[in-house]
Amino acid sequence: MRWVRDAVVLLVALVLQSTVLHRIEIAGARPDLLVAYVVYIAWMRGPVVGTVVGFGVGLIQDLDASVPLGLNALAKSIVGFLVAKAGFGVHRANAGVRFAFFFIAMLVHDVIYYAVATDGDLVAFGKQMVLTAVPSALYTGVVVVILLGIVETFSRRPLLADEV
């Protein structure tokens, strides 16, 4: 049942990412729900599922991208793996911890992404990190923490529960 729920959440994230989120863009920064989804799944389901889902979601993005096929898949696979490894045993219900995880995961993703996308151009890489990656990571962290809070309030159960 949870797989069905995860698939539905992924579909919703994909649709929102491509249709709605550009409307709430602030100075070029917009939330990245797909990275957030990979972080969420990796955190809840562990490194194997996190890596596989990261690869799959990244590949879907790559099919519609200007960058080389496989770049998003690579970045999200690594993020999924690292989040699952680092997130084991932390206090997931805490909003601050959640924000920190989503923020850092976004930054790690963007470091890999822009390192390849800018083709070794350090100036362009620095520019992208400062102007796009950091604001987007902050934005994503805030939006996802708020979204999780809203959903948990209505569903009356934690989406990111602590390890039992």
């Binding site: 562990g46 490194p47 194997v48 890596t51 596989v52 990261g54 690869f55 990244g58 790559d62 099919l63 080389p68 096929l69 496989g70 770049l71 898949a73 690579l74 696979s77 690594i78 793996f81 699952a84 490894k85 390849v116």
Partner: peptide, 29 residues
């Protein structure tokens, strides 16, 4: 070592796709 194995496979697949020629990438995509 399932987790590390899956990571290595995913990274290898991703890098393999990235190293394909642009025309081949377009076909696969």
């Amino acid at each position: 070592r399932t987790d590390w194995t899956v990571l290595v496979i995913a990274c290898t697949l991703s890098l393999s796709m990235m190293l394909l020629e642009a025309r081949m990438q377009a076909r696969v995509a």
